[in-house]
Measured scan of single mutants.
Amino acid sequence: DIIVVALYDYEAIHHEDLSFQKGDQMVVLEESGEWWKARSLATRKEGYIPSNYVARVDS
């Protein structure tokens, strides 16, 4: 799995977006363009995230 960590807070604009806080970790489910589908490890919610707001966690 690709794990990313939030670099900034993000408040969902559309209902399919995923809100998150700086430091939150998410599993990337699908990478396509600038918006990635991800699942929050904390809340288990899924939605689209702006890929420029996150960084990959080296395992």
Rank of each mutant, 00 (worst) to 15 (best):
E16H: 15
G23Y: 05
S59V: 13
E46D: 06
S32C: 15
G47A: 01
S59A: 13
E30T: 10
D1L: 15
L41Q: 06
A42G: 09
W36D: 01
R39G: 02
F20P: 00
R44S: 14
A55V: 14
D24L: 02
D1P: 14
G23V: 01
T43R: 04
D58R: 09
S32D: 11
Y8P: 00
A12K: 06
V28P: 01
L41D: 03
A55L: 10
V4T: 02
V4R: 02
S59K: 11
Q25H: 15
A42M: 11
D24I: 02
E30Q: 10
S32Y: 14
Q21R: 15
V54R: 00
Y48M: 13
T43F: 03
Y10W: 10
S51R: 12
R56K: 13
V28N: 02
D17A: 12
P50A: 03
K37L: 15
D24K: 01
Q21M: 11
K22Y: 05
L7R: 05
N52T: 11
E46C: 11
H14D: 09
A6R: 00
S32M: 13
A38I: 06
V28C: 05
E34N: 13
Y8L: 09
Q21S: 13
K22P: 03
R56A: 08
E16N: 14
D58A: 11
T43S: 10
Y8R: 14
L29N: 03
K22N: 04
D58C: 13
G47M: 02
V5Y: 10
L7T: 03
A12Y: 02
S51T: 06
L7N: 03
Q25D: 03
P50I: 03
E46A: 07
E31K: 13
Y8I: 07
A42D: 09
A38Y: 02
R39F: 11
H15W: 13
E30H: 10
L29H: 04
D9T: 09
L29D: 03
F20D: 00
F20R: 00
R39L: 09
H15T: 13
G23M: 03
E16M: 11
E34R: 13
E30C: 15
R44D: 13
S32A: 11
S40T: 07
E34H: 15
R39Y: 11
P50Y: 08
V5M: 08
Y8W: 11
H14Q: 08
D58S: 12
V5H: 05
P50N: 10
E11M: 12
V54S: 00
Y10N: 02
L29K: 04
